[in-house]
Simulated assay, not measured.
Amino acid sequence: MAKHVLLNNITHKDLKVITQHSARFGDNVGSTLTFPTEFGDVQREYPILFRKDERSGKFQSVVLLGLKPDENLFLDEFSGWKANYIPAVIERGPFLIGFQDQSADGGPERAPVVHLDVEHPRVNDSEGKAVFLEYGGMSPYLERINQLLQRIYEGMQISDAMFEAFSALDLIEPVTLEIEINEREQYRLQGNYTISAEKLAQLQGDDLLRLHRSGFLRCAYLAIESLGNVQRLIQLKNARA
C-alpha cells in the first residue's frame, strides 16, 4: 500500500532509489498517462490516445505501451526500456506532486512540493541512486526528478484547457484500433479517442488562429502523427512471438 510523505533531506538523507525498469517495480503496464508538455518527445516513440476518466468523465491523454493492460512492449527485463524517451509518469518512480499550504502576499496558497511513496519497491537505503548529497544538497538524480514533476504539473494545468478547446471545435473522435499479429492473435482496442484529421484540416479563420496561439494546434498534430507508432507496437509484438 502506498504511503506518501513530504520529502526532506533530514529524514531521507540516506535515501536511494533503484532506477532500472522491471515488472517487479510496476512497469509492466499497457498504458500510462501523458501530458501536453511532453507530447513532442512522446510522439516520436509511442501512440498518443485520449480516454475519458472513469470518475470525472474528463478526457485525459495516455501513451499506449502494449496491446493488453498488463503488457509493456517497451520493457525488456534484460536490457531495460527500449525507447529513447520514457514517459514522465513512469520515469518519476516513487516521487509525486503534493501540495502544501503556504503564504504568498498575505494570503493562503497551495504550492506544489515533492512527495515520496516510502512503500514503493524502488525505495531503500543501500541500492540505487542517492537522492541527496552528503551535506544535504540535491543530487543530480533529484534535480532530474524535479524537472519531471514540473513537466507533469505544468501539463496538468493546461490539459483541461486543451481538451476544452478541442471539444469546442468538435475535433475529438472515437477510434478503434484493430490489430492483427497473425491468424491466431488479433486485438481490438476500444474506448479510445483521437483528433479528427479531416476536421482539423478544415479549420480556418479565428478558430485556427486561437488554437495556434494557445499552442494546442501543435498538440493536435502531434497526437495525429503519433498514431504511426502503432506499427512499432506491432513490430515489438512480433519480435516477442
Rank of each mutant, 00 (worst) to 15 (best):
Ser214Val: 07
His115Arg: 10
Glu164Phe: 01
Ile18Ala: 08
Asp117Arg: 10
Ile181Val: 14
Arg122Leu: 07
Cys219Arg: 09
Gly57Asp: 12
Gln102His: 00
Ser103Asn: 07
Ile234Ser: 04
Phe132Ser: 03
Ser167Gly: 04
Glu225Ile: 15
Met138Val: 05
Asp105Leu: 07
Leu222His: 14
Lys16Leu: 04
Ile97Trp: 04
Arg188Phe: 03
Ala2Lys: 14
Gly106Met: 05
Leu64Met: 15
Leu169Arg: 14
Ala161Asn: 12
Val29Phe: 02
Asp170Cys: 01
His4Val: 13
Leu177Val: 14
Ser214His: 06
Ser139Lys: 08
Ser226Trp: 14
Ile48Thr: 00
Ile145Phe: 02
Phe59Lys: 08
Val5Gln: 09
Val118Asp: 09
Lys3Leu: 13
Asn238Gly: 02
Lys3Asn: 11
Lys129Ser: 02
Gln20Ile: 05
Asn229Asp: 08
Pro108Leu: 11
Phe132Lys: 07
Lys3Cys: 06
Gln204Asp: 15
Gln147Pro: 01
Phe50Cys: 06
Gln235Thr: 10
Lys129Thr: 01
Tyr187Ala: 08
Ile181Phe: 01
Asp76Arg: 05
Glu180Gln: 15
Leu133Thr: 05
Leu142Asn: 11
Gly57Lys: 12
Pro87Gln: 06
Leu116Ile: 11
Thr11Asp: 13
Asp160Gln: 13
Asp125Lys: 13
Pro36Ile: 08
Phe166Ser: 00
Leu75Phe: 07
Ser167Thr: 10
Leu15Asp: 00
Phe78Cys: 06
Asn182Ser: 12
Ala111Gln: 12
Thr194Ser: 09
Pro108Val: 05
Gln190Ser: 15
Pro69Ala: 06
Leu6Cys: 04
Gln231Phe: 09
Gln202Ser: 15
Arg210Tyr: 08
Leu222Arg: 13
Asn146Val: 14
Asp117Pro: 09
Leu15Trp: 04
Tyr187Lys: 07
Ala111His: 09
Gly136Tyr: 00
Phe74Glu: 05
Cys219Trp: 10
Ala197Thr: 05
Arg144Lys: 15
Ser214Cys: 06
Gly191Arg: 13
Asp160His: 11
Leu171Asp: 03
Glu173Pro: 01
Asp27Asn: 09
Ser61Trp: 12
Gly228Asn: 13
Leu6Asp: 10
Gly128Val: 03
Gly66Gln: 12
Met162Gln: 14
Phe59Tyr: 15
His212Lys: 12
Leu177Pro: 09
Lys82Trp: 05
Val62Ala: 09
Ile152Trp: 03
Leu227Lys: 10
Leu67Thr: 11
Asp53Phe: 07
Phe163Met: 01
Val29Cys: 03
His120Lys: 07
Ala220Gln: 11
